[in-house]
Amino acid sequence: MNKESVIIIENVTKRFPVGEGEFTALKNINLQFKRGEFTGLVGPSGSGKTTLLNIIGSLDSPTEGKAIVLGKNISDLSHQESALLRNKHIGFIFQVYNLLPVYTVFENVEFALLLQDYSKEERKKMVMEALEWVGLAGMADKKPDKLSGGEGQRVAIARAMVKRPEIVIADEPSANLDAANTHAILKTMKQLNEELGTTFLFSTHDEKVMGYLERIIHLRDGAVEEDEIIEANIINR
């Protein structure tokens, strides 16, 4: 089945000022990601994985080249427009979960919906559904400090998925998890990817995560070293 590209990266270069000079984090990257991909950016620290994800997530913009996400050139977006893009279409899962500590599990997941025009009833229904996806419906009233690492990351997945985004960006989601929890959250994400058709982009160097990826893009020193399709993991949707 021929799928449309939701993300197009064209000749993207990203440089950061370091002292008096510059550090080039991405060098002339060209990639395309199709709807429903379950893809990982793999490489050692400093290879440019997170920088590329930040650009795709409209948290940053390229120094050169174009990053077109859902038809929008990231460099051309205003603060408001990029916030709207993130709010409606992109979900984030962070390495350290980044749950808001004073909110309950329910409120953390509900947060993304508060910025949109959902009624209270709609929000409640959507949040509970998202918590059921990750198996935490019974923990809605707990605060993040009462959760284990695996539970915290599952809340983060629910928060990223509750608004049914087209793209989910997961930056080292298993870095703080043990093997059992890593497999649990990956299975959950894979299931959501299959059921909802959401595009998942990971940055990882965790072998366990790689075992679930349909496509692995190897980055080294800011350049694409290899773009590998893992046929065994591809599921026909």
């Binding site: 948290l59 916030a83 993130r86 709010n87 910025l115």
Partner: peptide
Amino acid sequence: TYIALGMTR
């Protein structure tokens, strides 16, 4: 996190 979740600055 607020910004990543879609709040404007």
